[in-house]
Design a protein around this nucleic acid. Structure first.
Lengths: 227, 227
DNA sequence: TTTATGTATTTTGTATACAAACGGAGCGAC
DNA sequence: GTCGCTCCGTTTGTATACAAAATACATAAA
């Protein structure tokens, strides 16, 4: 009997210490274990990760290019602290970018991709109804990422991913207030509908509005904890 | 007698070997001294630059994050070769981005910034009439960059710069045909006019069209030298 | 008490040394 | 001839050593 259901082939890939370090440090930042503005202690982190400074410092260069940390010559690296203006700038750009992504996805996505997105959306609704915040948040991120991927423009997808990473911590805060969360869910429902109908203009418009509103939701929260 | 006319104080800034290496290698790539798809010979380049491999390899990580080179684990780095699809993707994204930049610049730019851009445009016209292609090209790049900066969104400006760097070599090709160049100049004149009137919608529309047309101009050229 | 100056300690930047992985050349089996 | 193997030179990845710079600290002068 042939194995029709064998697991899909996974290309085996070499992972250098650099790559692993990038991921680990990125996660530490995104998940808030390394606080914004806080200095990055090379000695401590290298021993913690069990690697030497060479791949570690290369990882810092990568993360600096991604905008997650900043390196000041001879005075160390620190987790980048986003000013209110930068958060606004990031969301403004993301709104515009995902609006494009939405339009293109309606034109170019395969039916399977759209079905996948709609399924994702359904699962988000279930989680919302259970008020299961963290898993909802994760699916939400995935939804936006996969929508960008469905637009058939790899540079766009890559840029979206980068912006999203930089905003990740901040956006998590945005859904804390129940009414904010509910509004976001409504917008997502609208997005799903437009996607189902492959209505590019409407999806584009909704995406843009959704992210503009996200800024309003987020701004409320960060204004209190601002420097 | 007090020195009222002493030269203004210039903050002394430290430039690590890393930073210098990034710039140098980036220029080598952009100016075509390192060919796309070609392997990067660490030994040769480090001796050429007179530095050791450590800062050099950090520079490679930075450039990889910028999308100019690609690093394949254990098999070296090479100058990234753009496929036709990627060029299209880059220009599609840039079109959308600069459209936003145009709209925002009309809202937020200072009068001085606008005057500066218009002056730039005038100088471009002079160069066009002299058919002085390289200087024209450089001012053109500067125009797009400074327009993005005038939008008052640092992330947008940064992203624009990154996309532009990746496309730099390719776009230089685009203006080779006289009729193409002439069309581009016409579009620029329209942009200048919209800018002068601070007509955001019109500038946005023109920017987008300009870059869409750029794709058409470029596509003609790269299709012949494609892999 | 404050400010300045010199010294010790830590941290960062760069070079180098070594280990591991890759990529061919040559050789033999089929 | 093609495939597979082994060996060897080369390139890449990582650790470490050393140099340079910045920071912290202590002491002395105002």
């Amino acid at each position: 009997m042939p194995d029709n259901h064998r697991t899909p082939i996974q290309t085996i890939q070499k992972r250098s210490l650099h790559d692993q370090a990038v991921e680990q440090i990125r996660d530490l930042i995104i998940e808030g274990h390394l606080e914004p503005g806080h200095r990055i202690d090379e000695a401590a982190l290298t021993t913690e990760l069990g690697i030497s400074r060479t791949p570690f410092r290369e990882a810092l260069r990568t993360l600096a290019a991604e905008g997650l940390i900043e390196i000041r010559p001879s005075r160390g690296s620190r987790v980048r602290k986003l000013s209110t203006e930068e958060v606004h700038g990031l969301l403004e750009l993301q709104a515009h970018l995902e609006s494009l992504a939405g339009r293109l996805a309606c034109e170019r996505a395969t039916d399977a991709e759209i079905a996948g997105l709609l399924d994702l959306h359904d699962r988000m609704i279930v989680l919302y109804e259970a008020r299961d915040r963290l898993p909802y948040y994760k699916l939400n991120q995935e939804f936006h990422t996969r929508l960008a991927e469905a637009a058939g423009n790899s540079v766009l997808a890559e840029t979206q991913r980068s912006l999203q990473a930089r905003l990740k911590r901040i956006r998590f805060i945005g859904n804390r207030r129940p009414d904010f969360w509910s509004a976001a869910v409504h917008e997502h429902a609208e997005m799903a509908e437009a996607l189902r109908a492959r209505d590019g203009s409407r999806l584009a418009e909704t995406m843009e509005r959704h992210l503009k509103n996200t800024w309003d939701r987020v701004r409320n929260v960060i204004s209190s904890e601002d420097r």
